[in-house]
Structures are given as structure tokens and as C-alpha cells.
Design a protein around this nucleic acid. Sequence first.
DNA 1: GGCATGCATGGAT
DNA 2: CATCCATGCATGC
Length: 906
Amino acid sequence: MSSSSSAPAPAPKICFNSHCKEPKSEGPRRKGWRLRSGEFADLCDRCFSAYDQGSFCETFHSDAAGWRSCETCGKRLHCGCIVSVSAFVLLDAGGIECFACARKSVVMPQAPNQMWPSPLVKPPQISERKDFAIKSWKQMTGPFPGQWRQASHIWNASSLQSDLHQRLSYEFDRPTNTERMISGGRNSITAQEKKFEDLPEKLGSSSLNHVARDRYANGNTCLDPVSAFNIYQREEGSADGLQDRGHLVGENDPLSTRKAGISDPCSTSAAVNLENNPNSSVNSLPSSILKEDPSSLLIGLAAQFPSSNGAKDPSRVSTTHPQRQAGPPLSKQFCPHNGIDGELQAQMRNGRPRVDPRARTQLLPRYWPRITDQELQQISGDSNSVITPLFEKMLSASDAGRIGRLVLPKKCAEAYFPAISQPEGLPLKVQDASGKEWVFQFRFWPNNNSRMYVLEGVTPCIQSMQLQAGDTVTFSRIDPEGKLVMGFRKASSVSAEQDTQTGKAGNGFSTSTDGHNKNSATDLNANLPLRPLKGNTESRNSINTADQATWSKFDRSGFIQKDGPTARSSQGPTKRKGSNLGSKSKRLRMENEDSMELKVTWEEAQELLRPPPNHVPTIVVIEGIEIEEYEEAPVLGKRTYFTSNQSGDNYQWAQCEDCSKWRKLPVDATLPFGWTCSDNKWDPERSSCSSAQELSLEQLANLIPIKTGASKRSKVKVEADNIEVSDGLDTLANLAILGEGGALPTSSQPTTKHPRHRPGCTCIVCIQPPSGKGPKHKQTCTCNVCLTVKRRFRTLMLRREKRQSEREAEAARKQQQQQQQQLIQSPEMLPPLGNDPSSAGPSVSSSPQKAVVNNDGAEEGSECKKTSPSPLKAQIDLNIQPEREEEPSPKADAGGMMKLLRDAAS
DNA sequence: GGCATGCATGGAT
DNA sequence: CATCCATGCATGC
């Protein structure tokens, strides 16, 4: 992609279009569509021409998939790539509409907001000018937020939208920029582009977001209407808290009295401004703007999609927000927005700039509220109230500590809480999800020429919610009451970041963010008979949590998911650098017992995957490895262990959930998660918990990796080969080794069999016989699977060697430094061993005292341990990303690994 | 000494 | 580099 960037390159550029017949032709490059990186595709003249004429896809992608027809005019449009993403609009009712039709169907000849005096025609006073765009929004505001029912469909707490919105806010807060933008031209875009180029980071690098961003930016959406209503009148220094701010902007704003029943959510300040600006005409916008700068395009289109009281049909405008589209319509008003919206809200609410102009900058995604329908329902109860999620915050150690001070993000505080001019602040009434009302002192401390906002006296509330560091509190507002509501989300209930994707978070609310994820999670939860284990409680716990975490952390193939399309772009608390917890607080999360329970080996999770009921998984091939793909979220099944008897018969062992007895089952049995003896249809004699176990535990222990004693955690061990499953790669290797080596005794070989080992399936797992018997790949096999395994292991081992050498070098260096330091400082105080050449052994300790200890030969073991961050090293932390392929368990290096490496190197 | 308070510091963003 | 914010810590009760 870099080769195609717009950055000047000395060498002849290559046309970005891979289908270009003359990719290396000389000549200037033209900027085509915006890439996900924010840059533009450099096209040769010919390709650009095709692109410019809108025939690019027809020319180059005619054979590609993704062609659909406009629902209105029937024109064929390519919906399968980024190039044409701006050419169509997704319709609410399904299908697409070409841009021209969409425009026709939505744009009103006379924008409804023309009934109001244009802010540009009748500009506000200079002192207010900074807010005039905001006032425009206010004009658009209905008397009540409820007028924006469509809002949630379009502008949910999506980073994409918010970012666009933010940029709009950013731009339209600045009349000069606005004007420049309106006047069009590349010059006016630069700033935005620069800002836009920052997007990938802000958006969490979700590729889909990039695409979606462009799509939105290209007009398939409108600006956030949420911000246009539901706003308290902030009263500086008001002493009676929220109640005083319960009234809406319109009540105080004379302009609002002119508001009409605007119901189209697609009204925006941008739209209004542009609409009313005689200079603004979308049609007059240079095509370069439309094409090259999504933000300006968005603005332009916002003008093209003005809201109107007659607004034909708000749904005409693409509403691709996954959650709101997927979910049932909320009877209650849901006004999700982010901090940017909030800033705008605050602006609108105040009708004046914020005290601190910096507050107008963006709110960090980590504070974006991720509140769900159910949560909203719970908050609002049966009332017909309007809920506006404001922000959320993951509790730090300080927040959750006994001091009782909850540090509020500055921008959130300034945007959503009453303005305070005195450090003492004012009392703030907050209601929790159960309806209980708390009063906190909302105040600030002067800090570095700024303010640090805190809520004081939160300890009782935090405790009543049983929150701890790492948990998240959410702040919402209920209108028209204007109540501030504090919800929470336990980090412990699910993976710290993924709770939002499960339907049943262990918290005051349920949470969910992404539509399809939400559905998946719902299905998942519906399918999972989650019950506590009797025998192996911790193991079960880990599985239970894995149930919830699996679908977010693992993709359908069972591999841990990187930041995929389903990942929240606004990962906020946990996405950016993993957490908003500081380095110290990160430890909190890691050491949190519940979080530890989330750790499950890759294989454990993989092994537990079952296709959803009544669904046959499809097989996709990735890197030559066939992977099952489920159209619905897979469910978790029960772990079983496969063995063979001496006659070569294969079977599996499963443990009853109720009595913990082990039952022998046929190899093709697929067990549900909560399998019990009564489900044992294969062995009627042992279909009851009262039936004796076929083999003693000792006998079983020789067969399968069960622990006869107290087991803290189920670990899968392939004892015969001394391989401990550590991570996906090792597992892969183990499987390959088991398959290739064939030297392993089969009778005592509990393999890690594919959950659904199907005849004919050639996936990496299925090609390996459960017992090590059957056809095997030769060492010289060059099939994709073998090559992939070998290649990966080569890489793995190289990395490992590199790391090892780095570690050694580091240790030696530290040792040297340490010795030098000791000599310099006080040679006479050196401990006796300090002068002992034998003490020059490796030590990673940085303290002399520890160094002494470490010189003890007995510490060798601990030295090894230091390379492992956790006693659970053999288990995958679901928080990590497998792609890194780092820090494999040293144990996995045993025998088989080296063998494979040798094989791979040979 | 224990606790509450408010400011300062420094790592993170 | 500026700002934010988690937390340390001095101070006072």
C-alpha cells in the first residue's frame, strides 16, 4: 500500500489498480479512492479516468462478486469493494440504491430548515459566532428528543460515526473552516485530511471501519442527530445539580420555539449551515472533494440529505449501524452518542462555548458509552423516558479504592455534568440501575492549569455495586427527568473487554454492542447450558467464562481473533493499548481472579467448539488449512478425551457434569456442554449417575490426562510426548507431530481431537488420526498443511532463538552493570559472593540482594520461571493475540518441537 | 496513627 | 509536545 501512497516516490509509480494493464506506465498519478490508511489510491490516467467516470468497477471488477442492482433504477452497482462504496446507499429495507436515486428520494427541493432564519443569513453575534452551528442544531431540535427515533439507527456509539461527527464538530466549530470548506477546493480539505488520516488509529484499525468510514463518509449516512436534542441547559455554578438541568435546550432557547416537528434524524448543523449557505451547494462541490475527501463529502451529502419534516423517509438514508438494525426497535428513546456528541450537546445546551475550548476536542473512545438495549430498558424501567448514554469509565484502583474518589474524564465531566466554577463543585444526584439514588460531590482540583474532575463519595455506591478496579461504570441520562443514571459492567463477568458482546454480563445490565455479535452472543447463550461444575469447579469456571469470551476472542475457526471487524472500534477501555488502566492497573486486570479464569488454552477452546444446532459448518481454507466456519456462533461442547484400546478401537471419555464419573463413548459422539450420564445414550448401562465407572480413576489417569487429585485447572497434556499444550502453534505442532511421528504409543495417547472429526474432512486436525493410527503425512510431504506447519515452526523457532539470545545478552549485560556498580560504589560492601567469579552466572535480577540469592544454584528453576509470566503459562490468555506467536511455552519446546524444526529445516 | 483532603508528579496518550 | 489522569504524598484534623 505504501508503494501506492500519494507520497512522492523517486521510482516510477505503480498504478494502484492491480488490474491495470500498464501498471508501470510513466506519468503523473491521480488520486483515486481513499484507502483505508487515509491515503489515496494512486492511479494512472487511464484508471483514474475510469474511476472518475464511475466505471472503474465495471471496467476492472466486472468478474468480481458483489454486483447488485439499484432498487430504484436497476442500475448495476458493485458493492464488493472500496472503490464503489460511495456509489450506493444501503436501504433499510434491504437492497441498495444508487447514489443518484438515493439523492432524489431524500433531498427536498426546499430544505425544511429554511423555515428558520439561516444562521448564515442572519449570523449570530460575534461572541456567539463560534456556536452558530450549534444553534443551528438547536433549531433542528425537536421539543423533545423523542423526535429522533431514527437517530439510533444511524448514529449509534460507533467510532466511525462519532469520528465523522467529531470532525464535523471540529470543523463547524470553526467558522473559518466551515467557510473554507463550503467554498470547496483542495485547500480547504487539507486540515481535514490530516485529521482523517489519523482515523485508523482512532478507529481501532478495524478494516471494516475503514471501509465503513468511507462509506459513511461518502454519503450513506447523516450526521448525528442525537446531539441535537436532549440537552440540559447547563447552569454554571448551579447548586442543585441535575434537577436544574433537566430542561431542554428548547425551553430556554428562543430559537427553539420556532422549531418544527423535524423528525428526520439526518438534520445536522452541517446540513443546515450548508443548506442555508448560499455558497453551499453540493452540486457545486468540486468532484474532487466528493471523491477525495470523505469528510467534505459527508458535509456535502448532509446537505443533500437534509432533514425535513416531510422527510420522506429517514430510512431512505442508509442506516447500516449493525446494532440498531439488527435489534428490535426500542420503544424507548435511545440516544447513544459519544463524547463528541456530548461536546456538541454541551455546546448546544449552553448556547455558548465551553469554558475550556479544549474541551471541544474529542472524547477518547475509551469513554464512549457502550450501553445496550437491555441496559437501557432496565434503566428506564417502564417509563417512557429517553435515555442518553453519556460515557463510561473503567474504574482504576484509585477509583475503586476506599478513598471514594472517582476521577472523571475531564471532557466527560465538562460535557455532561454541570459546569462548576468552584473547586468545591456541587452535589450530584445519581441514580443507580436499581433506582437507588446517590449523591456525589462533583468537584474538581486545579491541576496543571487545568482541572481534574472527581466524584467524591462514591465508595458506598461502588461497594453496593460490588465494583472493583477494572469494572466499568456507565453514566447515562434519563429525560425528561434529567436524571443521571449510573450503571456498571463487571469486568469479571466476561473478558474484560468483551462483556459488551455477551448478552449476559454479570452486571446490573446486560451489554452488547455490535449487532451481529450481539446476536451471536445471544444465540450462544441460549445454546449453552451453563452450569457450575461439581467436580472441577475452576475448570468449569474457565470454560464458562470461555463460553462468553470465546466468540469475541476467537474467530469461528477457533483462532484467537485479532482486531477484527467485529471488534469494537471504540474499544475504549480495553482496546487502546489494552486498557485505560495504567501499567499498574493492568496488573489488576491480569491478577484478577476472574480474569484468570478466562485463560483457557487455545486448544481447550478449540476443542470445545461445536457447530450451532442444526447447522452444518462450512469449510474455508486459510493458508491451506481448512477451518470450519459456522454461520451462527458455535456453541461450546463438552471436553472429551480420545483413547484407543489395544485392539485399535477408538473411543472417547467424557465426564458427567453431575456425578463427575467418566464414561466411555464412541468417537463420533459429540457432547453438549452440560453432558451428564443421563445423556449417555450409547451405554444404557451407564446412563445413570448411579452406575459405576467403567474404569477406576487410576486406570483412567493412565489413559487420559485427568488428575485424580485436586485439580485447579484442566490442562491438556499429551503425556506420552511430554508436550504440554501451550498455544495454538504448539498445538498445531503437536498435532502434526502426532500425525507424523507415528511412534507414539496409541493406547495411552489422549489426543486433542477435532471436535467434529468428520470422515472426508481434510482439515489440519481431521487429517490426524485421533489415536495416531492411520495414514500419516510423510516427512517429505509438501502438502499445504505440512508446509504451513513447517513454515510456522521455522518462524517460531527463529523467534524463540532470537528472544533467547536477547534475554541472555540482557542478563549478561545487567550482571555486568551490577558488578561494575558494586565495585564503584563500595567494593568493601560487596557481599562475599560478589567477588566470586562463579557469581557471574546469569541473573536477571537488578538488585544486588536478589543477585546474591540468584547466585544460588537452586535458583536455576526460578530463573526458568521468570521467563514465564504466569503459572498459567501453558494456557492462553484470551487477552493476547495469537498472531504474535510469541512467548510459546518452553515446555512445548520438548522433543517434538525440535524434531519438527529439524524436519522443517531439512 | 489514621484518615480526609488537595495538590503534585509522572506515565500514558 | 501538550494534555490527561492515576496515583503519590504532604498537610491538617
